[in-house]
Design a protein around this nucleic acid. Sequence first.
DNA 1: GCTTGCTATAAACCTAAGTTTATAGTTCAT
DNA 2: ATGAACTATAAACTTAGGTTTATAGCAAGC
Lengths: 119, 119
Amino acid sequence: MKINDVSKLTGLPISTLRFYERKNLIPDTFVTRDANNYRIYSEEVVEFLNDVKALLSVDFSIEELSLLVNQELNLSYEVKKKIVEQKIQEIEEVQKRLKKSKQFLYAVLEGKANFQTKC
Amino acid sequence: MKINDVSKLTGLPISTLRFYERKNLIPDTFVTRDANNYRIYSEEVVEFLNDVKALLSVDFSIEELSLLVNQELNLSYEVKKKIVEQKIQEIEEVQKRLKKSKQFLYAVLEGKANFQTKC
DNA sequence: GCTTGCTATAAACCTAAGTTTATAGTTCAT
DNA sequence: ATGAACTATAAACTTAGGTTTATAGCAAGC
């Protein structure tokens, strides 16, 4: 698969695919080069990138995620586990804040929020 | 109250308070000027800013929020209601994504995610 | 009355996450 | 065998949400 195919299958712009690679977000196992230096991707990269998309859309930064996937850093399983566990904690914090903000917005709709009366 | 007091009571840096004001995020009802052009804030600004902090931390951009609070735009209640309702929808989308990502991360921890085996 | 601290503005700077542009080599259909 | 379409890199540009810096006018304690 060439970069255009991956772009179409994942919905990620070509420029973003190249950008992610520069950021070490795409392990070498997924991409090699042909004789013309064109990127050749394995089929599995699509599922991988869909996972990456989901995680980035939520609470992971590119840098954090690249820590998990970059082989060269050679982080131990224990360290990676810590990162994932901490991220789960962070997600739970965000969930709490979302819940509160939703309630607040419902109060705004009902004219019950102080906020509303001021603006 | 002067700007330093508001900063301490809300935890927002002075530079951020001035920045938010420039972005029309702080209605004039909360801040006037004294003879030296110093900002003088009303007491209620603290609660207001705490609400603002909560909403910004979640899913509102400064621009969206300023639409709701900027008097000069004079948006009707109906329009503001639409904005709030749409934001509630968006928050629900985010909640779904968070839930999925959490499950995915648990799968990663258990070594069950394909993602994990690749990196 | 002087130094230290608070306030002001404008403009420059910063980071993350991309996107766009400029330049150049490759490939494919006609 | 040529023009349109695809690929490559490096570097400049963009946007959001601030932060820092430069410069200057008040203020408050000693």
